[in-house]
Each structure stands twice: as structure tokens, then as C-alpha cells.
Design a protein around this nucleic acid. Structure first.
Length: 916
DNA sequence: ACCGCCGGGTGCC
DNA sequence: ACCGCCGGGTGCC
């Protein structure tokens, strides 16, 4: 009997984070994680009350707690002695004891049914070997409060509901503080480091980043909130203390603005910081013939006489190929130090944990293969730490080619770095092969599709994992995120130009990936950081700031080092070119404008109907904007806006509206998630949302009927209309009509021809929100013999990459013009070959235009950048520009506005546009 | 004494 | 646990 008990005891005693007992550790950590993840969010939870309880059985477990330390409570429904058991664990997941059974019996029901989340604090420390008191706090949804209180009191436990209220702080102040979270993270992070084997000289701020990253990987500084107290390490937030140095976070978030060269910095890091600050040992890259003669010598010769023979060979080679003189002398030098073909001394030294100096001395006397020896020493000291060689880079497909280019471009050509692209159906899944590479690059999609399917990537112990565009994995429930969290790595990096977009919640995934204990467990994150912050607790925000500061380096384009801007880009000039419409164009335009003005005016005068008819309003504006570009852009207009006679007709009209809204280039945002719409659907009241968003609104409305968040009309899931698939491809069908020109087309062509005659090497981006306009432009470009490519959202990734490569090429016959759809390709697109940008039509959102311009006005741009915006005189376009200016001002003044603010400002925009 | 009382053994869930 | 509880030993005062 007692043997069984002991076994069970040990079973629950495992350490959550060291995996000492692997299978058991998983069971317990899974239990804690599962318990923590079931709760939807700390947001919106209220404190029901508190209760003093007893933790018993302390003497059976090794987990210790300090006075004031937080403890976790985990249900153990499988406990053979009591199915109501509630386990108590400290922050490291070490079991401390159990909740006394009567209390556990009362709590079990509440915990199992998710009526409340129970948290414990040991307020009085351990005075007694057997039991200790614990303060339990019950948190949950307001609607569960009474049933929880009642349930507990029926069992004789009265929750103290006094004094638990948190003092609220004005939210606005905190909101601003949160916005500033990522500001000023450059302080005291100076120090520069030169990169090894990188052909491109690093800029000052990149050297600083490299130095910071190396320090983050090498130095054993205490993580935030830890301090040394005597012989122990003490966490000031959780009051947990430990004998061992808390595991440091080897890595962090590099959140520099895009264009500051994060990719280059990471490449430099890979080459510069292998083990113990030594560079990655890489094969010297020599011409094939040299390599072959070397190999021949190496195989044939007795290793003892190797050095002289190799040097001899080098001299011979030098005669044959004088250009390589520098390289061969470098090789001879290497050989004198006793290495064989590979510069493996550093590697061997790193493996054995000794420095490279002593390593090479040793090799001088002992001429046996250094490789064999290094293998032996690595086994002797088999801490897995030193075996890992490979850096795994995970990125979105869209920037994959960029990584490959950058490796090609920046790695010293005399050095052979093994970079493997783990992508495509033919990818090499051999773990042995992959872990012998220096760098493996893959995409989030490949990673998550491999995940759970005996993924080789998850079976390798990586030296380093780098998440590019790391904000992609902000949703912890996504398959991708789970796949990322399951990777084994010594060092972890997140690259992101936009670290927090929405809230504290997004940060958790990043913290969890970095393994910043104990916050990688959701429960502790919620308790210590997220809830305090969302409830307006200043200390909580302070803690969050400390935490973020510890792991993040962020500089913006406007940051300065020693009073100088980080990067000096070539000058950029923006011109507005007014376009006059021709007489017939003007007449058509005025006709449409009068009609539209009347319609919208009606909506504005009738209080509250603008939002209701939002899609119509956008459609009208859209038509006017199309008139400004080219008459053929106008879609076959489907009648006016009266009530539809049949359901089929209604559906047809809704689809038409949806099409117009989506095609309007207004970068429509979903009013539920405030992000760009994904999987767009339109309601019968003609408002566009993401399907999942609006479906959630409907299912959680709690009322008998769900209402549209924008206009309060009744909505039903069955009445949501999607964009039919066939419609998507129909776009190209209007092609066959006879081509005609327009004033704007003329204006563009004039510019292009003038530029070409001045300097035929200049490349241009021609940007429009209307892909059909781009199609129209193809005709005159072809006519005038321009070589051009086209990039829009409909193209496959493969095609995009190809087009970008073509355009970026400096070959004489490479295309000089790129037709670019405004929204095509995310940030990070590199089009520095172009130095002139023509914006054919103004965008609603000036930031979109800026982003587009930044694709060529960024690091790597050698020429002055000239931007020309075509604006039709006396038109809706002019008003749009005015609104843009106003928006820019507003943006700069107050950051972050509410949803209603945005919508009202949209209405104001519309009124201003139509000059009502 | 089919009790009370004493004192040793014992002890989470 | 410097407790409560259990069950055996014991038995007027």
C-alpha cells in the first residue's frame, strides 16, 4: 500500500521545467497548462472573494514556498485516494501538497465546471512541517459569482468578499503608457561588435544590435524580477526562490523598424556567435580545382607530413591562379595552425569547451585527426548544449526569397555557409542532414504542416531558432503557434517590425516562445502580468515594462545614436501632379457626382442612415474615383438602391456591394476585430465583416436576435452572403473592349517617356489600387516599347518572387517598370531597384501610400527617390488628399482611437469628400 | 465496562 | 502534529 502511495507521490513531484522525469513531467505540465488554457482570458474576470484554506501533506513533497509566494492549484481528478483532489504547486511546478480534502471537495465542482479560477498565495510561509495556510482567491465571470458563493457556503466555506477590490487607475493614462511600452528601449544598450565572415560592413546600429544579441546569448545575467539573496535566487514578483540560477532567456525580440537591417544583423549573429562568443566554424570556399587537389592530397598523404605538402600545393596553385593569391595564403596560414581543410579548430574547441587557442596548440603536437578528437571530447562532456550547430529560421513565405538573397549577398564569398531551404515536396527530411547544416530556412506553414506528423524539425535540438515576422504567431491557439512552441532550441529570437499591435495578450506568445519563466505558463502570465495590466494596476504595467525592456531591442527609423539618425537614406521628394480631365471625362464625372451627392446628402440628412448605407456610400465614392482614372474602370452599374424584389435579386445586389467595398481599395477593416477583413461576408444590412468575427457576434449575442454591430439591424448567420468563387476570376472578362486612353494615362506616359529619354537606367513603380487600371496601362507601355513586370495580389508566391527578382536585377535587359497594386505584398517587399514612384490614385489611408513608397525608399536605395502623385483637379481625389493631411495630423497627435471614433471620422470624411 | 479515561501510535489526497 | 483521531489497555478512590 505504502509503496503505491510513494510511487504516486513521486509521480506528482516532478519538476515542470527541467524534464528530469520526462514522461511524468509532461503529464503534470500538461495538466497545469491545460488548466490554465481552459480559462478563456483573465480579461473580464472579477474577484468573487477570498478564503483561508489549508495545504496538507507538505512532508511528502519537495516543493518549497516562501512567505507571500504564489502557488498554483491543479485539479487531480485521477487521484486514486480522492477524485476531488486539488494539488498545490509552486511556480516551478514542484508539488507542495494538497488542499485539505473537505475544502478540495467544495472546490472541485467549481474548478471542474469552470465556474471560477482559484489562485493561491501562501501569506505566512512554512512554519510547520505538515500543513500550512493558504489564501485562496476565486476569480470568474460575474454571472457565476452567486452560484460559486452559494456552493461554497453550503459546504461551510464563507468567502470573504470585502476589500478585494483593486483600485482602478484612469485607463487613458495606462493606455498611453502601454503605447509607449516599446519606446526608448535603446538606452544603455550601447557597445558594438564587429561581425565575422560578413561581407557587408555593418552600420553602427547593426553592430550595436549584434553586440546586444551576442550578450543576450552568452551572458548569464539574471532574468527580470530575480535577485540574489544570500545563497538563493529570489523572484520578487512571485516570491519564489531557488537554489539554482534561474534559467536565463538566451534570446529576445529584435523589434527594429523595418528597413534597419534585421536580416543582416541575424546573419551576422549566426556567423559571429557560435559557442562562447567564437565565430561559426565554416568551410573555406575555394574554387573547385583547388578544392579537388586539396582533397586528393588529404586522402593520399600521411597526416604527419600533411602540412608541408599542403603548403606546397598552395604555392603551386598560386602559380596557376594568381588572382587567388590572397585566398591561398589565408589557407596556408590556416594549415600552419594544423587544421585539415576545414577550419575546424574553433569548432573542436567549442565542442570540448576549451578555447580555440589551447585547442590549436594541442593539435600542433598531436597530429591525429582533429575531427576524431573533437568527437571524443564532445561525448565525454555530453551536455547537449555543444552539439547543436544549426540555426533554424522560420518566416512567412513572402520573405523567404529575401532571406536567401541576403545570405547570398552578405556572407563573405570566401566562406562556405551551408544554408538549406526546407521547403517544397522534395525537402530533405533527414534529421542527420538537417542538423549538419549551418542554417535551415523554412516557413510557418511548412513547420505547422510537419508538426504532429513525425516532424524532423521537432526532433532536432537547434542551436538557435529565429522567428521572422514573429507577430504572426500571436494567437496561441493556432496550429502554427503550437508548432513553434514545440521546437527545441538553446537560443530563441523573434524578429518583428510591429511587436505589439493590439494588446498585452499578444505578448504572451512571444514570452512563451522565449521561455521566460514562469510566464511561459499561461496561468502565471495572466496572474502576474495580464490581469493586473488590464485592470489598470500601475505596478502590473511597471512589471510588464520591465519585462519587455529586458527582452527587446527596438529602434525606429527616427531613432538616433549619438545625435545622428540610424540610417541615412537618400533624399526623397514627393510631387503632386494635377491632372485636368478632358471635356467628355469632366461631363461624365459631374453627372456621377451630382447623382451621388444627392444620394449621400439624403443619408446624411436622415439621422443615422449613413452607417446603414455605408456600402452604397463607398460604392458612389468608388465610382467617382474610377472616373478620375479611366472610364473603363467603371463596373456595370447594377441599378439604384431600392428594395430588392426577390431573394435572388437581393443576393445579387449584396454581392455587388461586397465587390465594390472590397475593390474600393479603402482597406476595409472589420468593425469587430478592427483588422483588415478576412473571409469577407456582407450582412443584409450591407455591412462587411470577417466571417468568423460576425459569426461569433451572432453566437454570443445572448439576446433572442443578434444585431449588426454597426447599425443594430437584425442579422442571422443564414443571411450572411459570401463572395462567390467564380466572381473572383471574372475580373479579366472586361478585357476585350477596344482600348482608349484617359487624362491620367496621358499624364503618366508623358512622365515615363521624359524619364526614359533622360536616363534609361531609371526604374519606376507605377502604383494603383485598381488592378484593372494596371491592366489598362499595359497597352500603352507595350506600345512605347517599355519592358515591364506586374505584381498584384492575385499572383502566386512563386510568380511574385520571380517578378521581384527580374525587376531587381541590374541586367541591361531587365524591366524598368513595375506595375504594382497598392495592397500587393506585405511589408518587407524590397523594390530598391526603383527610384521613381508614380501613385496613380490617392488612398484612403496615407500610411498605405507611405508603406508603398518605403518599398523602394529603404535600406539599399542608392538614388534619390522621386514620388509623383497624380491628382485630378476639382475632384473627389483632391478632397481625399485634404483628408489624408488631416488624418496625418490626428495620427501624430493622439495615437489609438476607439472603434466608434473611427466610424464617425469615416462619416466626417464622406461629408467632406462630397462637399456636403 | 454494551462505558469513560489514559497514553501510545499515527498522520495528505 | 505543541493537534485530532483511532483503537488497545484498562478500570474505585
Amino acid at each position: 500500500h505504502s509503496g503505491w502511495k510513494f510511487g504516486w507521490g513521486r509521480f506528482s513531484e516532478v519538476d515542470l521545467f527541467t524534464d528530469r522525469h520526462e514522461s511524468n513531467a509532461e503529464t503534470l505540465s500538461q495538466a497545469i497548462r491545460a488548466a490554465a488554457s481552459e480559462e478563456p482570458d483573465a480579461d473580464g474576470s472579477v474577484l468573487f472573494g477570498q478564503l483561508k484554506g489549508t495545504v496538507v501533506g507538505l512532508r511528502y513533497y519537495s516543493g518549497v514556498v516562501n512567505q507571500g509566494e504564489m502557488v498554483g492549484l491543479v485539479r487531480q481528478p485521477q487521484n486514486p485516494y480522492d477524485r476531488n483532489a486539488v494539488m498545490v504547486a509552486n511556480i516551478y511546478g514542484n508539488q507542495v501538497g494538497h488542499i485539505k480534502k473537505e475544502l478540495a471537495a467544495a472546490m472541485a465542482y467549481i474548478m471542474d465546471n469552470n465556474l471560477a479560477k482559484v489562485e493561491g498565495v501562501v501569506y505566512s510561509g512554512t512554519k510547520n512541517t505538515y500543513t500550512m495556510p493558504v489564501m485562496l482567491s476565486f476569480w470568474g465571470k460575474e454571472e457565476s459569482k452567486n452560484s460559486v458563493l452559494e456552493h461554497m457556503s453550503r459546504r461551510g466555506y464563507k468567502l470573504n468578499t470585502e476589500g478585494g477590490k483593486l483600485k482602478g487607475t484612469p485607463c487613458t493614462i495606462l493606455k498611453n503608457a502601454f503605447d509607449n511600452l516599446f519606446e526608448g528601449l535603446m538606452e544603455s544598450k550601447d557597445g558594438e561588435k564587429e561581425a565575422a565572415s560578413v561581407a557587408t560592413p555593418l552600420l553602427l546600429h547593426q553592430k550595436q544590435a549584434l553586440s546586444w544579441m551576442c550578450a543576450r546569448e552568452n551572458k548569464a545575467a539574471l532574468p527580470p524580477f530575480w535577485e540574489k539573496r544570500g545563497e538563493l535566487y529570489y523572484n520578487t514578483l512571485t516570491c519564489f526562490s531557488a537554489k539554482e540560477l534561474p534559467e536565463r532567456v538566451r534570446g529576445g525580440i529584435l523589434a527594429d523598424d523595418m528597413g534597419l537591417g534585421k536580416t543582416l544583423t541575424v546573419i551576422a549573429l549566426i556567423l559571429t556567435n557560435f559557442h562562447k562568443g567564437k565565430p561559426l566554424p565554416v568551410e573555406k570556399c575555394v574554387s573547385r580545382s583547388v578544392l579537388q587537389s586539396f582533397q586528393a592530397i588529404c586522402f593520399m598523404s600521411n597526416l604527419c607530413s600533411l602540412i608541408t605538402k599542403c603548403v606546397f600545393t598552395c604555392v603551386q596553385v598560386e602559380k596557376v591562379s594568381p588572382i587567388k593569391a590572397k585566398m591561398t595564403s589565408q589557407m596556408a596560414l590556416t594549415l600552419e595552425e594544423g587544421s585539415v581543410l576545414f577550419e575546424d579548430l574553433d569548432f573542436a574547441a567549442a565542442l570540448s569547451g576549451s578555447t580555440s587557442d589551447t585547442g590549436s596548440k594541442k593539435k600542433k603536437t598531436d597530429k591525429k585527426s582533429s575531427l576524431t578528437q573533437s568527437a571524443e571530447s564532445s561525448i565525454a562532456e555530453s551536455t547537449d548544449d555543444l552539439k547543436a550547430r544549426t540555426t533554424l529560421i522560420i518566416c512567412p513565405l513572402s520573405v523567404l526569397s529575401n532571406w536567401l538573397d541576403q545570405f547570398e549577398q552578405h556572407v563573405d564569398p570566401n566562406v562556405k555557409l551551408n544554408v538549406y531551404l526546407y521547403y517544397g515536396p522534395e525537402r530533405n527530411r533527414s534529421k542527420k542532414f538537417l542538423s549538419s547544416q549551418d542554417v535551415v530556412i523554412t516557413t510557418y506553414n511548412v513547420l505547422s504542416s510537419d508538426f504532429g506528423n513525425k516532424s524532423p524539425l521537432h526532433g532536432i535540438s537547434w542551436l538557435r531558432v529565429v522567428l521572422d515576422e514573429g507577430h504572426i504567431i500571436r494567437n496561441p491557439n493556432a496550429q502554427m503557434s503550437k508548432a513553434v512552441l514545440d521546437l527545441k532550441a538553446q537560443r530563441r529570437w523573434i524578429l518583428s517590425g510591429t511587436p505589439i499591435q493590439n494588446s498585452v495578450r499578444d505578448l504572451w506568445m512571444l514570452v512563451a516562445f522565449l521561455g521566460l519563466k514562469p510566464f511561459d505558463t499561461r496561468e502565471w502570465w495572466n496572474r502576474v502580468i495580464q490581469r493586473p495590466v488590464t485592470q489598470g494596476d500601475r505596478a502590473g504595467l511597471q512589471h510588464l515594462q520591465t519585462l519587455v525592456k529586458y527582452i527587446t531591442l527596438r529602434r525606429t527609423k527616427n531613432s538616433e545614436v549619438n545625435g545622428r539618425p540610424l540610417v541615412s537614406l537618400p533624399e526623397k521628394k514627393v510631387y503632386v501632379e494635377q491632372v485636368e480631365l478632358s471635356q467628355p471625362e469632366r461631363e461624365e464625372y459631374e453627372l456621377a457626382r451630382t447623382e451621388g451627392k444627392n444620394t449621400i446628402g439624403r443619408y446624411v440628412r436622415t439621422e443615422g442612415t449613413v452607417l446603414r448605407n455605408y456600402a452604397d456610400v463607398l460604392a458612389i465614392l468608388m465610382r467617382l474615383r474610377q472616373h478620375c482614372c479611366h472610364p473603363d474602370l467603371l463596373a456595370k452599374i447594377s441599378s439604384d438602391l431600392g428594395a430588392a424584389a426577390t431573394p435572388a435579386e437581393l443576393r445579387e445586389r449584396l454581392i455587388e456591394k461586397l465587390r465594390l467595398v472590397l475593390a474600393s481599395g479603402s482597406d476595409e477593416e472589420c468593425s469587430v476585430c478592427l483588422d483588415s477583413v478576412r473571409l469577407p461576408v456582407i450582412t443584409h444590412c450591407a455591412h462587411v465583416y470577417c466571417r468568423p468575427c460576425i459569426a461569433q457576434v451572432i453566437s454570443t449575442s445572448g439576446q433572442e436576435v443578434a444585431r449588426c454591430p454597426l447599425c443594430r439591424s437584425e442579422i442571422k448567420t443564414s443571411e450572411l452572403v459570401e463572395f462567390p468563387q467564380e466572381e473572383m476570376e471574372e475580373e479579366n472578362s472586361t478585357k476585350s473592349e477596344r482600348w482608349r486612353t484617359s487624362s491620367k494615362v496621358q499624364a503618366l506616359m508623358g512622365n515615363l517617356l521624359r524619364l526614359r529619354s533622360k536616363d534609361s537606367s531609371i526604374k519606376c513603380l507605377v502604383v494603383s489600387q485598381f488592378t484593372r487600371f494596371l491592366t489598362i496601362l499595359e497597352t500603352p507601355l507595350r506600345e512605347h516599347g517599355f519592358s515591364f513586370v506586374r505584381l498584384d495580389g492575385t499572383m502566386t508566391q512563386k510568380k511574385r518572387t520571380q517578378v521581384i527578382q527580374e525587376f531587381q536585377s541590374s541586367a541591361a535587359d531587365s524591366p524598368t517598370i513595375m506595375l504594382l497594386s497598392l495592397k500587393a505584398g506585405g511589408v518587407g517587399l524590397n523594390l530598391t531597384a526603383a527610384s521613381h514612384v508614380f501613385l496613380m490614385d490617392p488612398a484612403w489611408n496615407p500610411a498605405t501610400e507611405e508603406q508603398c513608397i518605403d518599398r523602394c525608399h529603404r535600406l539599399g536605395q542608392k538614388r534619390k527617390v522621386v514620388v509623383t502623385k497624380f491628382i485630378v483637379k476639382d475632384s473627389v481625389e483632391e478632397n481625399m488628399v485634404k483628408i489624408q493631411r488631416k488624418k496625418q495630423d490626428l495620427m501624430e497627435k493622439a495615437f489609438g482611437s476607439t472603434n466608434t471614433d473611427r466610424k464617425t471620422s469615416r462619416i466626417d470624411d464622406i461629408v467632406a469628400l462630397m462637399e456636403l
